[in-house]
Amino acid sequence: MTSDNDRRRGLLARLRGRPVARSRGRRRLGAAVRLAAALMLAGGAYTVFAPGVQAQDNPPLTAAANEGKALFDVSCVTCHGRNAQGVEGRGPSLIGVGSASVEFQVSSGRMPMARQEAQALRKPPQFTDEQVRQLGQYIQELGGGPQVPQGNNLHENADMAAGGELFRINCSQCHAFGGGGGALSSGKYAPSLRPASDRQIYAAMLSGPQNMPVFGDNQITPEQKADIIAYIQETLKHNQDQGGFNLGRYGPSTEGLAIFLVGIVALVFASLWIAGKS
């Protein structure tokens, strides 16, 4: 459970508005934080294992979280159950997934899901940014979990080249070199990164939505995450490429299609004209 503790420690530190860099002060906080984490875990476990416990037993929610709870009870409760404990066969428990997960799923329109299928699709979001924040706050206060830092631009002054290196090792196998996404087994797929915002990419790395592996802050530090986001946003997202129209960046398959549909077709028409009678 060390890893969970570590992650929680970083998160708590950030919650208090401290810089994420390892500092002596932060380490001193260790004991207190571990205690808090243990309590939180125990709380989470309690809520999971004791479905009968009602909301009144939880610590009081902040105003934003109350707003979020209202939204939750209207739109999410069918599948994720009261107090986000999950409904067998419909939706998982959201205890401990953190606001990062909520932010990714709801702001990209994947949640609420239209129907049960292999994988939730990206859709126009049904909630405003403010509502997403409130929902996230509610889930965060219910069970804790990873959170995305403040701000909409998370890649200021980041190192694109370092991000590219990390992208190729950790991301390109599923999302492809060009960020266009790719197929996974049995109908699942890695989505295109082009419509994703900074916050969504960050949240996805932190929370590992659906079949994506989790890239916690110990594996890829927040600075490195910023580098990756910089690489995606600055080089992959622009549809304008150095070499002309990029054919969707699908690689040799569309290039092969193009040589027949454009090259061969054009030249066959030319030869029809050249050898024609007129």
């Binding site: 190729r168 390109s172 266009g180 699908y250 040589i259």
Partner: peptide, 16 residues
């Protein structure tokens, strides 16, 4: 990127 034995991309294909 440069060839590294541990790096790969989805949709790795040869020419047509």
């Amino acid at each position: 990127g440069p060839y590294e034995a541990w790096v790969v991309s989805a949709a790795s294909q040869p020419d047509w």
